[in-house]
């Protein structure tokens, strides 16, 4: 009944039992957010630092709300306004934060592996809120929580992940998590966005949208990072949308009761058409709601381990 680890760095190192523990705990936190008084005193005196080296609204807000609903204190550091711009190194920033005695540091960084480096440098618990194209574990946990809530199981589900697989930490964390939990994962996208040897992670690889989503229980559309267009991964947004935008017609290849997910922020009309994003199968906003619960569960489980 304890997450026997100091940090949450990625889904890859979690066991099935640990994932189940986090998801079960998250389920219990759902009702704290629906009460009139959306706060419990559980983490009084705990300080959570949100250290974000990349822009983020959703994830940072979600962590902050999660911490506050548990009565923890939160401090947000956006590096654009911090001493990073004065040339301080990452580890120096971390050591200075450590000296102020927070309990948990939530880190988002564009370099893969930076949470691991931080975890070795400081004694605080570190939660990875996205590191480069490596992992985004809390996103995968909230995705799995949403799938489990709607489909009542994870094992045996067929999940299609479509888009820029190569640059997606969301895809990687979900692949690690879902294959561990017994789901079948297929990935789809243009060949320029498909990493080599991705099939070694135990996924099916497709280059056509319809093939990737065939008979899927869940379709997860990834955001096309518009800034990637300059790197010539695809000729134009219009062409990408023509082949890979999930719409009313091509969705027919999936199961009738398919769920549509998106980690946000969405590019409407690029990877997902508005009638799908706002349609009856979309659980995109439920994902956001569950995100708060998953992050509450992690803050709770990582804090409870001290004696």
């Amino acid at each position: 009944m304890k997450l026997a680890r100091k940090d949450l760095l990625g889904i890859q190192e979690l066991s099935v039992e640990e994932i189940n523990l986090i998801l079960d705990t998250a389920d219990s936190f759902i009702d704290v957010s629906t009460r009139e008084i959306k706060k419990v005193p559980t983490l009084r005196g705990v300080t959570v630092v949100n250290l974000f080296y990349e822009p983020s609204t959703r994830t940072r807000t979600s962590f902050e709300i999660a911490a506050k609903r548990l009565s923890a204190d939160t401090i947000n550091i956006a590096t654009s306004t911090s001493s990073v711009v004065k040339g301080e190194t990452f580890i120096d920033t971390a050591r200075n934060l450590e000296a102020m005695n927070p309990d948990i540091i939530v880190l988002r960084h564009s370099a893969a592996g930076s949470p691991h480096m931080l975890s070795r440098a400081v004694r605080q618990s570190v939660i990875n809120a996205g590191d480069g194209a490596h992992e985004h574990p809390t996103q995968a946990l909230l995705d799995m929580m949403t799938m489990r809530e709607k489909k009542k199981r994870l094992a045996g589900l067929k999940v299609a992940i479509v888009g820029d697989i190569a640059h997606s930490r969301v895809a990687r964390s979900n692949i690690y998590g879902l294959t561990k939990m017994g789901a079948t994962v297929s990935v789809g996208g243009p060949i320029t966005m498909m990493p080599r040897f991705i099939e070694r992670l135990g996924v099916e690889v497709h280059y056509r949208l319809e093939d990737a989503i065939r008979d899927a229980d869940i379709i997860m559309m990834l955001r096309i990072q518009l800034e990637r267009q300059e790197t010539n991964l695809f000729p134009s947004l219009r062409e990408y949308a023509r082949y890979y935008c999930l719409n009313r017609c091509n969705i027919a290849a999936a199961k009738d009761d398919v769920l549509i997910m998106h980690p946000g922020p969405m590019n409407r009309g690029v990877e997902i058409s508005p009638e799908i994003a706002d349609g009856p199968y979309s659980v995109i906003l439920e994902q956001v709601t569950n995100g708060v619960a998953v992050r509450m569960a992690l803050l709770y489980l990582l804090s409870g381990g001290k004696s």
Partner: peptide
């Protein structure tokens, strides 16, 4: 979630 020994009990309870 209202216990007074969450931080000292050494484990997060279900």
């Amino acid at each position: 979630l209202y216990r007074d020994d969450i931080m000292t009990s050494g484990r997060a309870r279900q």
